[in-house]
Design a binder for these strands. Structure first.
Lengths: 241, 241
DNA sequence: CATCCTGTGTGCACTTTTGAACAGAAGGCT
DNA sequence: AGCCTTCTGTTCAAAAGTGCACACAGGATG
């Protein structure tokens, strides 16, 4: 399929009127995140716990009965396949929930949650969480906002996986991790992260990651000796086709 | 990494006490889906429209200002990459929402929504949807339940993509499509679906899909001349490592 | 009827990715 | 200092996947 830019499929489809475009972008009150409010709803310190780096919060296969909320630190969600391969499906930050699958059908954890640094986590039982969602509209809103953002992110990861080669996927996670320290400094220092972990995040092998890391370094897109610096503007060109 | 079955990583991590496992599986009122209730909240027929097969509901890049809900039929969400490759990221059924990304940050549609057969769709503006979510707890619940299930599904798709070869991915979508006609008859007839579409769903090329379809047929896992039958029990063996 | 489409069956050269091996560097521990 | 472990740099053959090309079939359309 050559580069027929915007709509590559010859649209043999009828394309009549479209709904839902009456007015554009109202300054409508959007669902937004209010950490203060949230914490008050989550209640007192009794339900909170601190985890150290690499401590497991729950494991794939455990009974799923509670939802967690990060107030400080980072949490990594991983899945192991039947053959023992491991994949990182998310790295979560303060303000993120996890383990929310149990609110749906899931009786069992589908992934393993591990603290990535010193991490403070609030948790509430499924019952309590359902109660909150039923009785506290503001809390529901916050939770919905989170689910939406998470949805979007996973979907992007999926699309990335479907479209891009491992080289681009690596470039993408590096860029995401770089902006991660929230100030989008053009040159960001990344949290320590082994090539092995990177490989698990983009779904490839370590040798592949190593290969591309060296390539990026030679090209001046990143540099690392000890700590890892990313030159976002430069690395970005990898993503442009 | 050889086959070190359950936990392949030598867990050098401290694994102390875990939170959130006080009591197990309370018969607590779980978030559940009530279509009747939902429809009443969504209001009268004024906001509803019927789309014919292949009709586009919205396109990638359109302004995003409304949320849609399927009452009948099927909707396909697709994304096109810069190079014009197309990927199917979801096939949605009655009871599913879509376009909900606009409730979060998204001012623009990230995917194209297309009716896959004759399809009835309710829609509501972002403003109205936000209002409903704020004022109607039952509606929020339904929406949360949907978001959760969708989340789980996308996550599974992502993991599938990360772990499995195209052969397995094909087997998986065929199985999913088979159970799709909701009765999990061991031998299901699939909705018509070109090899091209299948290729877009699993992120590979048509020739690859063709290759495996023939392989599956020769092995007796599926058969097709005109319509497509899947022998679920048999095809399942493809997924077992 | 001829012709256009769309979907299928198939082959093949080319590229990417895997999986595994081996060796060096750096840090922690005794 | 010696030893272990984790992370990295590098290589390489084999496997998987891609991108094309061409031929054929059936349905729709004029």
């Amino acid at each position: 399929m050559p580069s027929r830019s915007p709509n590559p499929k010859k649209s043999s489809a009828p394309r009549l009127q479209k709904l839902g475009q009456e007015k554009s972008a109202l300054p409508v009150s959007i669902l937004e995140f209010d950490p203060k409010l949230l914490l008050s709803k989550l209640g007192n310190g009794k339900t909170s716990q601190v985890y150290v780096d690499k401590q497991v919060i729950f494991s794939q296969g455990d009974a799923a009965d509670a939802v967690y909320y990060i107030t400080k630190g980072k949490v990594k969600l991983t899945v192991v396949s039947k053959r023992g391969k491991e994949a990182v499906i998310a790295i979560l930050r303060p303000g993120d929930f996890f383990g929310e699958g149990c609110l749906a059908a899931q009786p069992i954890r589908l992934s393993t949650a591990t603290a990535v640094e010193q991490t403070s986590i609030k948790y509430m039982s499924k019952a309590k969480m359902v109660g909150l969602l039923k009785r506290e509209p503001e809390f529901s809103e916050v939770f919905i906002a989170y689910l939406l953002s998470r949805n979007i992110r996973i979907e992007e990861d999926l699309v990335d996986q479907l479209f891009n080669s491992s080289e681009k996927r690596l470039a993408r996670v590096l860029l995401l991790l770089a902006q991660y320290g929230k100030d989008s400094t053009p040159e960001a220092v990344l949290p320590k992260m082994s090539q092995e972990t990177l490989a698990e995040m983009i779904g490839t092998t370590r040798s592949r990651v190593n290969f591309f890391m060296n390539k990026f370094r030679k090209l001046g897109f990143i540099d690392y000796n000890g700590s890892l610096h990313v030159h976002s503007a430069l690395l970005n060109v990898v993503l442009r086709d």
